[in-house]
Amino acid sequence: MAQTSDLKQSPLHDRHAALGAKFAEFGGWSMPLEYSSGVVKEHTAVRESVGIFDVSHLGKAMVTGPGAAEFINATLSNDLAKIRPGKAQYTLCCDAATGGIVDDLIAYYQDDEHVLLVPNAANTAEVVRRLAAEAPQGVRIVDHHDDYAVLAVQGTKSDEVLSRVGLPVGHEYMSFAEAEFGEPGGPAVVVCRTGYTGERGYELIAANEIAGELWDQLLAAGEEFGMLACGLGSRDTLRTEMGYPLHGQDITIDVTPNEAGLGWAVGWKKEAFWGREPLVAEKEAGPKRKLRGLIAVDRGIPRPGMGVTLVADVPLCDITSGTFSPTLKKGIGMALVPTMIHPGAELGVDVRGRREIFASTKLPFVDPSVREA
């Protein structure tokens, strides 16, 4: 683990420390893992009311110039032509030779000459490098990773909280709007109807200079709804309940979209995107493994790296993500299980030397309908 002095800090770091946050390293950044309320209470606040996360470690890269949107559509996996300006799209940066997932990210389609990309923290430099190496003349990729904060307000009361600080709400899922913060003519905040928890919510992109005031106002506005400051520990339990993959665990450059169950984020009818040929061939042949959900039959709690077996002496794979689900009150996990194994099979997980039985299940673990409520 990197030394604390080597890690980047959010512009809100001092505020987190004042709230009693425990910090951990995420993609080269020192970020709040949890606050004094604890992971379970933070998780429950999002599921039942509202929570606020600092996710400023996420990357921010702007692709600009004539043909910027066309260039992104010819490189990243999803079909940007299927959405209009003002909409966002989940997409993948895949390796051209293998189809493996370099990163999963959100593309914000502003107009044909401006596309904002939000990659994962640890992968931002690599995504920017790959795009810059292939960009046609006139198209620029500018890394703004350290210039902007990202706050996520997530939960059933997220609209009420944002409304109280004068930010727009109610726009459709995976869309965004730019708004003035504070007085008319004030600094711009991008309000994105996105999130990584499965609940209704918004992600706010704002310049570092106003991040502190924005955070303070949102916390004050959310007090009447019992809003909690939430760390990345509860963000992990929330996203695992939804079956959302985490890069570096469930998906890596050695995992393809077909294996990860992310074929829906691939524009198969597009003439070109990085990794198209190997991915089309794999899709036609069928992947040899697939990301599946596992839910404890008894009391076992899986953790990444724990071995998964068909029977005690037949190893299959390892848990990629695993945790205790505060919503289901059970252990849940994900693993890249060989496709020869029946989707409904019961499998063993080596939990600290004990073989605990887990039932295979479709993802997500919790009702996904709340995402677009």
Rank of each mutant, 00 (worst) to 15 (best):
S325A: 11
G322Y: 04
V46D: 06
Q89G: 02
T320D: 09
A149P: 02
D367M: 02
A61M: 06
G248D: 06
P302R: 01
M174C: 08
E356H: 14
E346A: 10
E160F: 06
G248S: 08
S321H: 02
A21N: 05
S30C: 12
W274Q: 08
Q249W: 08
L294G: 04
L214Y: 00
V115H: 06
R303A: 12
A149N: 04
D79S: 11
V266S: 01
P168L: 02
A221S: 11
R289K: 15
M174D: 13
I205S: 07
R15F: 12
F176D: 02
G51W: 10
L238P: 00
Q217C: 11
D216M: 09
Y196R: 07
L363I: 07
L151A: 03
G212L: 07
P338W: 06
A260Y: 00
A220E: 15
R15A: 15
M334W: 06
I295L: 04
A122D: 12
I253Y: 00
E178V: 09
V189F: 03
V280P: 00
G305W: 08
C230L: 11
P11L: 10
A260V: 01
E199I: 01
E42A: 11
P119M: 12
V191Q: 01
L167A: 08
I141K: 03
R200F: 07
I295D: 04
E34P: 11
